[in-house]
């Protein structure tokens, strides 16, 4: 396994003297990640995602538990590990704003021990891979956020890391920029077999990039499965959207709730374990003036929200 986490906990001490209290940011989490996997590590604000990433990369020392990343103990072998991983924090830059990316790469190349020839070759390669070679000589502060994020990605890929830790990498990007960035991450994974460990609040990041989702809330892992399984297992629900030719009463059926009802539109939420979709569709067609009808899965966003809220309820 590339990453192995076992019973990991992190507690922060806040306040002074009498007001001192301990906050459990991460509680007893365990999971493992295989080489080449694309994993989304998600959760609401304050769930413990960033704290976990910082422990995985060796910045923070855990309060309890064990971590092995590429066979190394991150907080004890942080510098050796740094040679083999890449990290991108969407809210923190590793490029120098006054300089061009190429000048920053020279500094990072020296830090990661790349020879001058190797560095030139690598920068050219990344320029091609990320379609960003034309940005290398423009000062970072003159670049748009989307352009800068491509340069940030190049910076953390310079030393050919085996794992990429991406913490909110698309934050602040526009729709097009986000899509381009997601495509780049998937391409890196497919061409280099780079393991991707991603945190994001953007469901589209998870859908486009990840194969597997680990959900953390209140410092605990509450879900760990493939994106597809997440859809299937949690989708005992279907949406039936009915366009109405003229206003009509909705039928009353067991396992069916009305989510929306207007003179021209009706949305039914069907619990497929209590009622079959066929029965609902037949009832709708026989009792309503149907102008249009469609059946859909709920968006992944609703599923994730339902996981979060389920975990919040004791």
């Amino acid at each position: 396994m590339t990453i192995e986490v076992s019973e990991l906990s992190k507690a922060f001490v806040t306040g002074r003297k009498a007001r001192r209290k301990t906050v459990d940011a991460v509680r007893d989490i365990s999971f493992s990640v295989a080489a080449g996997e694309r994993v989304a590590f998600i959760g609401p604000n304050g769930a413990g995602k960033s704290t976990s990433i910082k422990m995985l990369t060796g910045i923070l020392h855990p309060s309890a538990g064990t971590i092995s990343v590429l066979g190394l103990v991150p907080w004890q072998q942080r510098r050796q590990l740094a040679m083999r991983i890449g990290t991108l924090f969407g809210q923190r830059s590793q490029l120098w704003f006054e300089l061009t990316p190429r000048q920053s790469f020279r500094m990072l190349g020296a830090i990661f021990g790349l020879s001058d020839q190797h560095l030139v070759r690598r920068v050219d390669e990344l320029g091609e891979l990320l379609d960003a070679g034309h940005l290398w000589d423009t000062p970072v502060r003159s670049q748009s956020l989307g352009q800068r994020m491509r340069c940030e990605l190049a910076a953390c890929m310079l030393h050919e890391p085996e794992i990429l830790f991406l913490d909110e990498p698309t934050i602040g990007l526009d729709l097009l920029g986000k899509q381009l960035f997601r495509d780049l991450i998937v391409r890196l994974n497919q061409q280099r077999n780079t393991t991707i460990f991603l945190t994001s609040h953007d469901v589209a990041d998870i859908e486009s990039v990840a194969e597997r989702v680990i959900v953390i809330n209140h410092g605990e892992v509450i879900y760990d499965d493939s994106v597809e399984a997440m859809r299937r297992s949690l989708f005992a629900t279907k949406y039936v959207d009915v366009g109405l030719a003229h206003p009509a009463e909705a039928p009353s059926l067991v396992g069916v709730t009305i989510a929306q009802h207007s003179p021209t539109m009706l949305r039914l939420v069907v619990d497929t374990e209590a009622q079959s979709i066929g029965t609902v569709v037949n009832a709708v067609l026989s009792s309503l003036p149907v102008a249009d009808l469609s059946i859909a899965d709920p968006p992944l966003e609703s599923v994730i929200a339902s996981i979060y809220s389920t975990a919040r309820t004791p």
Partner: peptide
């Protein structure tokens, strides 16, 4: 602010650099 975390992710002494 934690900005120093980015520097700690490099395989070198933060203070020397």
């Amino acid at each position: 602010s934690g900005a120093i975390a980015v520097e700690m992710l490099r395989p070198v002494s933060v203070v020397a650099v």
